[in-house]
Amino acid sequence: MTVPKTPVLVLDCSDPEPLARFYATLLGATVAPADGDPDLLLLHTPDGPALGIRRDPGQAPPSWPRPEDSQQAHLRILVAPDALDEAEREAISLGARPVAAEQNGTRLDRRTDLRRYTDPAGHAFVLAPAHGAPDRVSP
């Protein structure tokens, strides 16, 4: 029998409170300190923990995208397909920075189904269409 587990992606940054507020507002989540770790904030949605933001005073912002590397790890936020434009406006108003998408040295049209950004601390994330039940976004 497998022991029950709850995976949580944790983003490191030098100042976790503003980054936690950014994602809490973007995801409609609440923020609470993690039990036993004063440097970790957990964002909770109605389904449970969704994301962690951890203080790391020596953390350097990621350098993505780099043409010579792959995208590396990123947060994928699923959105109803007809709400992508609205979600994009919301993310940018909160401080997200759009990232130009390129393929083989050619810039792709920004009006695609996948919207690429960095958060205020430089972590990569995308807004992607969720194809599933209209009342619940599923992977």
Rank of each mutant, 00 (worst) to 15 (best):
P4R: 02
K5P: 05
T6L: 07
V8C: 00
L9A: 14
V10N: 01
V10Q: 01
V10F: 02
L11H: 04
S14P: 05
S14L: 11
D15I: 12
L19Y: 04
R21F: 09
F22P: 00
F22Y: 04
Y23P: 00
Y23A: 01
G28H: 02
A29L: 03
P33M: 08
A34H: 04
D35E: 13
G36V: 07
P38A: 14
D39Y: 06
L40F: 09
L40I: 09
L41H: 07
L41A: 00
L42C: 00
L42S: 02
L42I: 10
L42V: 06
P46A: 08
D47T: 09
P49Y: 04
A50S: 02
G52H: 07
G52P: 07
I53K: 02
R54T: 09
R54Q: 13
R55Y: 05
R55G: 03
D56N: 12
G58H: 13
A60V: 15
A60S: 11
P62Q: 10
S63R: 12
P65M: 01
R66L: 10
R66N: 07
P67W: 05
Q71L: 15
Q71S: 13
Q71N: 10
Q72F: 14
A73S: 10
R76K: 13
R76V: 15
L78I: 11
A80F: 07
D82L: 08
A83V: 09
A83M: 10
L84M: 11
E86P: 04
A87M: 09
E88A: 13
R89V: 14
A91F: 06
I92Y: 02
I92K: 00
G95L: 06
G95V: 03
A96E: 03
R97C: 09
R97K: 12
R97T: 15
P98C: 04
V99P: 06
A101H: 04
A101D: 09
N104P: 02
G105A: 06
T106H: 11
R107N: 04
R107H: 06
R107L: 13
L108I: 11
L108Q: 06
D109S: 08
D109M: 04
R110F: 12
R110L: 11
R110M: 08
R111Y: 12
R111H: 14
R111A: 14
T112G: 15
L114D: 09
R116C: 14
Y117D: 01
T118R: 06
D119R: 02
D119K: 06
P120S: 05
V126S: 13
V126M: 10
L127K: 00
L127Q: 00
A128T: 12
A128V: 11
P129D: 05
P129C: 01
A130I: 09
H131G: 06
H131Y: 14
G132T: 11
A133C: 12
P134R: 02
R136V: 15
R136M: 11
R136L: 14
V137M: 07
S138D: 12
S138G: 13
P139H: 08
P139D: 03
